[in-house]
Amino acid sequence: MSIQHFRVALIPFFAAFCLPVFAHPETLVKVKDAEDQLGARVGYIELDLNSGKILESFRPEERFPMMSTFKVLLCGAVLSRVDAGQEQLGRRIHYSQNDLVKYSPVTEKHLTDGMTVRELCSAAITMSDNTAANLLLTTIGGPKELTAFLHNMGDHVTRLDRWEPELNEAIPNDERDTTMPAAMATTLRKLLTGELLTLASRQQLIDWMEADKVAGPLLRSALPAGWFIADKSGASERGSRGIIAALGPDGKPSRIVVIYTTGSQATMDERNRQIAEIGASLIKHW
């Protein structure tokens, strides 16, 4: 058993032996400061991975655009179909130039040979490839079927209504393609630790998130040596930015963190910096 498999397999085991986890309101002070700095709403939640207890939250039940963070949920739905014998990670999917949409750094290189379902999930999560996400959405029946999958998990909040890139429109008060921090954190925890997916599929999902290559300026920039993080970021119109993550010290995840912001006029660099500073406060007061 690899170190990674050891880590995921023991998450339920550690729940019975973990020390009490204490919240630190200092992080919420930073979240509120980020709102002031960005001139935008910020949603935040910090969840204990083992118990599911909410440690801190700010606007946990307000809607925010999901942006590309939905791609983790999408690959969770794909893995659920794999577990049920309805899909194979090794199945190759062929597509054409007409299928390519904006920001497809991986799929645009494989027009001649296509990509496997496994490769598409990797591209969608680690590189946020939009065509990969659309191709995967097609395999499960489209955005409405992803919403149905989430409903069956008990998440009646999170919804996907459109495809890439239209889902990134982020119109104020538009509930399409949105979630709430509390709903996203709970759903992510179920995917990573619950019985919905097999152990192998849970491991695969967290491996893809751990290999994320496009979230460096966010929480990863504040991470001390030896800490673990598996994450997925997102960005969209109207100053929207977000990240969902499982992270913790000693090389294993122990908390879920979800951060969303929307409605800012700030630059992408400034949005990144504010999220990184929230992460730094979280780690300092861990």
Rank of each mutant, 00 (worst) to 15 (best):
S2A: 11
I3D: 10
I3V: 10
R7G: 14
R7Y: 11
L10S: 13
I11R: 06
P12S: 15
P12N: 13
F13S: 12
A15E: 06
A15P: 08
F17V: 12
L19W: 15
L19D: 12
V21T: 11
F22C: 13
H24P: 13
P25V: 10
K30E: 03
L38R: 04
G39A: 12
A40T: 08
A40S: 10
V42R: 03
G43R: 01
Y44L: 08
E46G: 04
L49V: 09
N50A: 15
N50C: 11
G52I: 02
K53G: 08
I54P: 07
R59H: 09
P60L: 07
E61Q: 14
M66T: 03
T69C: 02
T69N: 00
K71E: 00
L74E: 00
C75L: 03
C75S: 04
V78C: 05
L79Y: 13
L79V: 04
S80H: 14
V82Q: 04
A84D: 12
A84C: 09
G85W: 05
G85A: 09
Q86L: 13
E87V: 07
E87L: 09
E87N: 02
Q88W: 15
G90D: 14
R91D: 03
Q97W: 15
Q97F: 15
D99L: 09
V106S: 07
D113R: 11
D113M: 09
D113I: 09
M115P: 02
V117R: 00
R118Q: 13
E119V: 00
S122C: 12
S122R: 12
M127K: 08
T131R: 00
T131G: 07
A132S: 07
N134H: 03
T138L: 12
T138N: 14
T138I: 10
P143A: 03
P143H: 05
L150M: 08
H151N: 13
N152Y: 10
M153N: 09
M153H: 09
M153A: 11
M153V: 10
M153T: 10
T158H: 00
T158P: 02
L160S: 09
D161S: 04
W163M: 08
E164R: 03
E164G: 03
P165H: 03
E166W: 10
L167S: 06
N168Y: 02
A170R: 09
A170V: 13
D174C: 04
D177Q: 00
T178G: 02
P181Q: 00
A182R: 14
L188M: 10
K190L: 09
G194Q: 11
L196Q: 13
L197M: 07
L197Q: 03
T198S: 13
L199R: 14
L199I: 14
A200C: 12
Q203R: 13
W208Y: 05
E210L: 08
D212A: 03
K213Y: 09
K213I: 09
A215D: 04
P217R: 09
P217T: 10
L218P: 01
L218S: 02
L219S: 02
L219G: 01
S221W: 07
L223F: 04
P224S: 04
P224L: 02
S233A: 03
S236R: 03
S236V: 05
R238M: 13
G239W: 04
S240I: 10
G242E: 00
G242Y: 00
I243P: 01
I244Y: 02
I244Q: 01
A245L: 02
P249R: 06
P249M: 05
P249I: 04
D250L: 09
D250N: 15
G251C: 08
G251M: 12
K252Y: 11
K252Q: 12
P253T: 05
V257L: 06
I259M: 07
I259L: 08
T262R: 08
T267R: 09
M268E: 06
M268A: 07
G279S: 08
A280S: 12
S281F: 08
I283C: 07
I283S: 04
